[in-house]
């Protein structure tokens, strides 16, 4: 518990009858902030940035989620980061924005299994039912800021900063065991 992270390999951390928590493989994560006219950026990214908070868009392996009125998180395979950064750099003069590589900042837990949504209620004060499949939100899990992606009814991803990950992981592990021990 609270052990630091040495391994950045994708791996199953815990699996019970209730849910499974694993760590996603590392990838590129880019924090994008911009305002106003988005088409030049959309063209550079090859993807229409969603403008409603919580909505997502995808083009090939590039995935974007709208986190705020001027803010998106982009996920892509590691190798694609340089390409995205340079494509956006080309339109910087006409479309100023902030694009910051935060690939090293965060890690992602993949949470799935029959009671995955309930597992999140151990730390998430908001109604998980309010996040539609295919959407996501930035929210708090046990006081830690996370980005929660809902990929399916019972399938989620949770991004958090590295130093918070052991705390989050510890509670997810307790929860997986606790839920599995319940007789429903």
């Amino acid at each position: 518990m609270n052990a630091p992270l040495h391994s950045f390999e994708p791996s199953v951390l815990i699996e019970t009858a209730a849910a499974r928590v694993s760590r996603a493989a590392p990838g590129a994560r880019l924090s994008l902030q911009a305002r106003g006219d988005l088409p030049p950026l959309n063209a550079a990214l090859g993807l229409d940035l969603p403008t409603r908070i919580g909505r997502r868009a995808r083009a090939g392996a590039l995935e974007a989620i709208c986190l705020g009125p001027e803010e998106w998180m982009l996920h892509a395979p590691e190798a694609q980061a340089v390409e995205i950064l340079s494509a956006c750099a080309e339109v910087y003069a006409s479309r100023p924005r902030s694009l910051v590589d935060v690939s090293g900042r965060e890690t992602t837990f993949v949470i799935d299994g029959p009671r995955a949504a309930e597992l999140l209620t151990l730390g998430c004060a908001r109604d998980i039912d309010g996040i539609a499949v295919g959407e996501g939100r930035r929210t708090a899990f046990d006081g830690v800021t996370v980005i929660l992606w809902r990929d399916g009814e019972t399938s989620f991803r949770m991004d958090c900063w590295h130093s918070f990950a052991p705390h989050v992981q510890h509670l997810l592990e307790i929860g997986c065991r606790e839920l599995a021990a319940e007789t429903i």
């Binding site: 918070f164 705390h167 307790i174």
Partner: peptide, 17 residues
């Protein structure tokens, strides 16, 4: 859950270990 090691978040760096 907030007791013992989980009482509050303890952030550690990569060099902590």
């Amino acid at each position: 859950y907030h007791r013992g090691a989980h009482f509050e978040v303890t952030r550690k760096t990569q060099i902590d270990a």
